[in-house]
């Protein structure tokens, strides 16, 4: 109940921003001179570390009310809820001038490029990815692989690339092998694991995914996918391994040239060579991970969310079409 009330406060009493202190701090001087960065700098000038990670409540005039993240690694929702309530009370006690200041930021004040300035074309294959580890020995909430955490990501294929997911002949029983470059984008951008690994193309040992038309009635073609996946990284930065299998099913509308449904599911073992003190706990190096790729429902709360690895491992055609 406490969590629902917290979300209600965010919904009804506040405007909520989820963004990156690292990206703001990494802007060029020219971009930092603009109004958006200056507003953020002014808002957090009362905080010891300036623009830094944390959960902050600020006024639209650029005044810091409170830093409200409490508890580590498991946040204390009760205390955060109390701190947020106090911030809202404090906000309402301010004069209108103190709350709002004198001006609203304009589009020309924008310091940071945002991904939702250009829509991904509707004719593309736009997928949403979720992945979650299985229970594993010695797991702790500090560990990014803990099954309480889900990795959410996006994966895009252009209208032309989308056709790689259907066999050339749409008759029942027709089989085809998927093109390696399509499967590579899934693997190299870590859609089958939680977190991210620095896979290179030469780390892919097996990427065999086949597809078969299991029914074709009118314009509706049902396709099944089955595959084996294996990666062994051996670089200075990554010595991870992945060994898994893939199943999937989709319904293709051959008249409208679009997928009515699409799912790729993977289950595999993700091995890490070196556990890191800032990401892992215990001694378990290999964890089973389940992942799901489905048509993206385009949730309002995910507006502006690009693939985590964008534009790595995307074709020139896709990158050029989405240049922001």
């Amino acid at each position: 109940m406490q969590s629902k009330r917290f979300v209600e406060l965010l919904q009804k009493e506040c405007v909520s921003v989820a963004s990156s202190d690292v990206r703001y701090n990494g802007l060029s001087d020219a971009m930092k001179a603009k109004g958006e960065y200056q507003f953020l700098r002014r808002s957090l000038s009362g905080h010891a570390h300036g623009i830094h990670q944390g959960v902050f409540v600020v006024t639209p005039s650029g005044k810091l009310l409170k830093k409200i993240n409490w508890g580590w690694p498991v946040p204390d929702v009760g205390e955060m809820h109390r701190q947020l309530e106090q911030s809202i009370v404090a906000y309402k006690k301010l004069s209108k001038g103190e709350r709002l200041g004198v001006e609203v930021l304009k589009e020309t004040d924008r310091s940071m490029r945002v991904a939702d300035r250009k829509d991904v074309p509707a004719g593309w294959l736009r997928l949403r990815n979720t992945s979650r580890s299985y229970v594993f020995p010695e797991m702790e909430l500090f560990d990014i692989r803990h099954p309480s955490y889900v990795t959410v990501d996006k994966l895009w294929f252009s209208g032309v690339e989308k056709l790689c997911f259907i066999p050339g002949v749409l008759k029942k029983g027709e089989k085809e092998v998927m093109k390696p470059e399509v499967v590579s984008r899934v693997l190299l951008n870590s859609h089958m694991i939680t977190g991210r690994s620095a896979w290179w193309r030469e780390h892919i040992r097996v990427a065999d995914v086949g597809m078969e038309v299991v029914s074709a009635k009118g314009d509706q073609v049902e396709i099944r996918y089955r595959g084996k996946l294996k990666l062994v990284a051996d670089s200075k930065w990554c010595k991870d391994t992945y060994d898994g299998s893939l199943l999937g099913k989709a319904v293709w509308d051959s008249g409208k040239k679009r997928f009515l449904s699409f799912e790729w599911v993977t289950l595999g073992s993700h091995g890490i060579d070196s556990l890191l003190s800032n990401m892992h706990r215990g001694t378990t190096k290999s964890v089973d991970v389940a992942s799901l790729l489905r048509l993206d429902p385009y949730l309002k709360c995910e507006r502006g969310m690009a693939p985590a690895h964008w534009p790595e491992n995307y074709s020139r055609e896709v990158v050029d079409a989405l240049k922001w």
Binding site: V7, L10, Q11, E13, C14, V15, S16, V17, A18, S19, S20, D21, V22, Y24, G35, E36, F39, L40, S43, I51, H52, Q53, G54, V55, F56, V57, V58, T59, P60, G62, L65, I68, L84, S87, I88, Y91, K96, R99, L100, G101, V104, L105, D109, R110, S111, M112, V114, A115, D116, K300, C301, E302, R303, G304, M305, A306, A308
Partner: peptide, 29 residues
């Protein structure tokens, strides 16, 4: 929650609706 992905959009809506802005700032999306 209608998360804004950047501070500018948050400030504009906070100003328009006269609401405090909750900013979660960490590395990445």
């Amino acid at each position: 929650v209608d998360w804004k992905s950047n501070v500018l959009d948050g400030q504009r809506e906070g100003y328009k609706d006269d609401k405090p802005i909750v900013m979660i700032l960490f590395f990445g999306d």
